[in-house]
Design a protein around this nucleic acid. Structure first.
Length: 361
DNA sequence: GAGTCGTGGTC
DNA sequence: TGACCAAGACT
């Protein structure tokens, strides 16, 4: 039995739950269900992703894969195609692996506790707790970006949020807040309430303390330190990397290449990519084009830890020329490009080149 | 335990 | 407009 922290008011969690029922968010499509499949799917998509971005993907997934077994039975390529554009593609690969594990080792059903959920691929401690709280009412604390901000202010917890030390403190307080609450705490409303508070009231800039149920005993508010908590994460300068991408076109088809499962854009279809122009031109030499590739306008894509400047080169190949392909490559009709899950900048590149524009002949 | 992994919204 | 970061997990 965890020790109750006397410094934590026993009604703090209940205030959050009551506030959620009265003033929290209620219209999101994954709310008001206890179906663990829907809860799990939404929680995976919502990792590091804002709710409004997730909505259309979530609904499309439920149409394509109505049950977890449908998802498990689908080819990985179909799952990645449906995920394309949402980012962090390891989530999609782990989602698929998790569905297969549930089908093959759990009779197609979800484990009934957060501890068992956390053993599955792609389900970490926070996602496991969220699924258990929403689907089963388990008293398991979550710790996502919203909760980190709310707790860092309420308890005045300092420290770089990226360090394990700060994470341990935050988890400890998240657990203590639940443990201090009465037995009848509405876990679904409480869990949702913490996230809603962080998303709509206890925002990064200009928190609206007048509308916050934690305001009376919030240490950051009492000490006037809302602006300096949570401690902003130390950030390094983002290096700028360059790459070249080949748009080889022949008879209305484009050469795509499936990326390896590990690394950036793992498992997605993309354009053949090169670290320098010479490597790209060496490949062009083997493609029997009539002339040299044509430079298109370069684009810049921003990742979390670097920026990538992409120089696309367009190579037209005569109709009667051979079009060799490696095992991980395919010549894809321009009308069928959308059938292939592609990274956002590659999709934008090809859209700009081909969307509605008849091919010059 | 720090680095890696996307994309888009917000101010 | 560029910094900041969002319902984090994995290695």
């Amino acid at each position: 039995m965890p020790r109750r922290d006397p410094a934590i008011p026993d009604d703090a969690a209940s205030r959050i739950a009551a506030w959620q029922r009265r003033a929290g968010r209620h219209g999101l499509p994954w709310q008001h269900t206890r179906d663990p499949y829907r809860v799990w799917l939404s929680e995976i998509m919502l990792q590091q992703t804002q709710a409004t971005t997730v909505v259309p993907y979530y609904e499309r997934f439920l149409t394509l894969f109505p049950t977890v077994v449908d998802l498990a039975d689908a080819p990985q390529d179909a799952v990645l195609r449906a995920w394309a554009g949402l980012g962090y593609y390891a989530r999609a690969r782990n989602l698929h692996r998790c569905a297969q594990a549930l089908r093959d080792e759990h009779g197609g059903r979800f484990p009934a506790t957060a501890a068992d959920l956390a053993q599955l691929p792609g389900i970490g401690p926070s996602t496991a707790a969220a699924v258990a709280a929403f689907a089963y009412g388990e008293r398991a604390p979550i710790l996502d970006g919203n909760v980190r901000r709310v707790l860092a202010r309420y308890f005045a917890i300092e420290g770089d949020p990226a360090t394990a030390r700060t994470a341990r403190r935050l988890w400890s307080h998240a657990r203590a807040l639940v443990d201090a609450a009465p037995a009848d705490l509405d876990m679904a409303a409480y869990t949702q309430g913490q996230m809603d508070l962080g998303a709509t009231v206890c925002t990064r800039t200009r928190p609206d303390c007048a509308r916050c149920p934690l305001s009376p005993d919030c240490r950051a508010r009492i000490e006037g330190r809302q602006g300096e908590l949570p401690t902003p994460r130390a950030r390094r300068a983002q290096p700028l990397r360059h790459c070249w991408m080949l748009i080889a076109e022949c008879e209305g088809r484009v050469l795509l290449e499936r990326r390896p499962d590990t690394g950036i854009w793992g498992g997605l279809w993309a354009l053949p990519q090169f670290e320098d122009e010479a490597a790209l031109e060496a490949v062009c030499a083997g493609l029997a084009a009539a002339g040299p590739p044509l430079s298109l306008a370069s684009i810049e894509h921003v990742f979390t830890h670097f920026r990538l400047r992409i120089q696309p080169l367009w190579l037209r190949i005569p109709d009667d020329a051979p079009t060799p392909a490696e095992a991980n490559q395919a010549w894809v009709g321009i009308g069928n490009l959308a059938d292939h899950g592609m990274p956002a900048p590659v999709a934008r590149l090809l859209d700009g080149l081909y969307d509605g524009t008849p091919l010059p002949r």
